[in-house]
Design a protein around this nucleic acid. Structure first.
Lengths: 355, 355
DNA sequence: CTGAAAGCGCTTACAG
DNA sequence: CTGAAAGCGCTTACAG
């Protein structure tokens, strides 16, 4: 483990020369709280208080200790502090991915908010593969986080039980369920699917299709979409399922396959804006005008899409609000609040052009 | 700090009878290595070895201990482990932001690679404000990371000195300097500015302008851009500087201001693709055709831009490669390699349409 | 307001 | 291959 500085010189009263003794017997050690205490002429407990409860320390003592801390460049060891106090000040954020992802916004705001409150974020990328989830959870829990942000609702029972048993606040996000582990900030993907289906129906779509990733949340949207359409008498919905992560290239390749399956398709619900942009490009190549001949709806409502692809419809979800609300839920509970909140942030279908 | 399970110890109820009152620090404690050891009929050291050097444990013992671990749901406490072993298995990633950012790709790949090697990533968002950098570094170092990924080259001397003194491997990324703290994986923003200027000059641009964020790296690109243009006899380059983070909206607002300053502007170098997309939109509103009347060059080469805004030119940088290379540099050093590598990943100007 | 003692849950070094 | 002892650098609980 890294040392903050070379060890303090034994002769503390002499002005520090720039070249401290690099190696001492037993190898170089980092500065410890006792080094600061000795220099400041107080006990280690007092130094600890300077960091953790400065209000309980006499002003002059406080100042003197701080001077020494500054001069020595002492940084407390939080591994030791966390072990001793059972307060790791660590929050884990478990997210499938942050690259080109809606989640990055959530993690950003979440992290900012938590660090303002004195916590640090351990980033755990789960990918879209569930097979290593147990190992990931082990790794996360081994750090003894004081709270966990989960993306999506945990699916396997084993995971849910383990998380519930840990006894720390958990926020599930970006999804909705009747039985959250603890707290929840999200929205219903199923209802989004329903809403997009209704949007299509209102526009007299006859032959809707689907291009979707096969991850849990995308499949939930698919479920709502198909169910609602079936209620309207539309069955045998053509679909192309792709493996995450979604990209423009994947969407571009998927649309022709869909059109091949169902040449009369007049509307497509894509699992993400990137897929939708790819589909739009493919539609162009196929000579289909969007949205008049082929309507395309994405998911995510990426900022740039408004300007660059007004032909596309998208589903807007407030990832920033999710991150902020999730952070607040956790902080409230860490501050002693008892209730387990469930927040539905909802969604909004954004149609930009009707040409 | 979370407990893995309710207390296993049965001695908790009668505090002050025969035995000297044992101090119960905190509430009920989680499972400890001694609990596993007792159940498996081995010593704690052996359980430790099962996790940290399984090859040194007899196969039957290994199996037996693992069964108990599984049955009890024991997860080692890495705060204790790290303190004891001086190996935190933590790597810090200090990044300005991950939202709508090129950096998210780097962090993604970096994190994946590090976790495959048994490390976890502490995410530290520095923002674009340097004022709190010391505090951020304190927070990071208090976790005793075994390595640090920095975005950009650290600017303040104090920071550089502190980081150098910690004695752990450091990788600076996304920039270039002659005097890296330790290792470096990046490219020269100045040279990008020069290259874009030359690109413009080759296309007979007469009146180039600049829309840029005023962060360190964007200003370096600006420096190269203006210097090269001045060499070609072009001075008084119109510019609009904006505060990060950049966005489409900001770019959209900036272009008209630039055109107002210099109505005959025929090419703009934007600090990012988002700014460029906003500028493109504004150009449309101003009745300027892109690129024939007004060429626009962005930075970042976002994937979707190829499809959605082929009118734009952009500078491509391989963020994935940066993340991967940075991770490898760190891992090599953690594995004992001595050298401090500097990798220039370069860049590439991508021109999509010449219409 | 301040401190001496005990302990957090592990791992290192040394022995057998 | 396995274990008894010592200690990592802090903080809690108690006392003054």
């Amino acid at each position: 483990m890294p040392n903050q500085k070379p060890p303090a010189a034994a002769d503390a009263d002499l002005p520090d020369t720039a070249a401290p003794a690099r190696r001492m017997r037993g190898g170089p050690k980092g500065l410890r709280i006792t080094d600061v205490a000795a220099q400041a002429g107080v006990s280690p407990i007092t130094v600890s208080r300077v960091f953790n409860s400065p209000a309980t320390v006499a002003p002059e003592t406080l100042e003197r200790v701080r001077q020494v801390v500054q001069k020595l460049g002492y940084v407390p060891n939080r591994l030791a502090g966390g072990l001793s106090s059972s307060r790791s000040r660590l929050i884990a954020a478990i997210v499938p991915t942050i690259a080109h992802s809606l989640f990055s916004e959530t993690v950003q705001v979440f992290s900012e908010t938590m660090s303002r409150a004195g916590y640090q974020v351990l980033l755990a990328l789960s990918g879209y593969d569930d097979s290593s989830e147990e190992a990931l959870l082990d790794a996360v829990l081994s750090r003894r986080p004081e709270g966990v942000l989960l993306t999506g609702v945990a699916h396997t029972d084993s995971l849910r039980v383990r998380l519930a048993n840990v006894g720390i606040p958990i926020v599930e996000t970006w999804d909705m369920t009747d039985q959250p582990i603890d707290m929840l900030v999200g929205f219903s993907h199923y209802r989004i699917g329903v809403a997009v289906a209704e949007h299509f129906l209102q526009r007299n779509v006859r032959k809707p299709g689907l291009v979707s990733a096969n991850d849990a949340r995308a499949l939930a949207r698919r479920g709502g979409f198909c169910t609602r359409l079936e209620q309207a008498g539309i069955r045998d919905i053509a679909e192309v399922l792709v493996a995450p992560p979604s990209s423009v290239a994947v969407g571009k390749a998927a649309l022709p396959r869909l059109i091949e399956q169902a040449p009369d398709t007049d509307a497509v619900f894509c699992g993400s804006d990137l897929l939708a942009i790819g589909a739009l490009s493919a539609a162009r190549h196929l000579g289909l005008s969007v949205p008049s001949q082929l309507a395309i709806c994405g998911f995510g409502d990426l900022e740039f899409a408004t300007e660059t692809t007004p032909q596309l419809t998208s589903v807007h979800v407030d990832g920033t609000r999710i991150g902020l609300t999730a952070a607040r839920c956790l902080l409230d509970r860490l501050a002693g609040a008892a209730q387990s909140k469930v927040t539905d942030v909802g969604f909004r279908i954004v149609e930009r052009a009707t040409t």
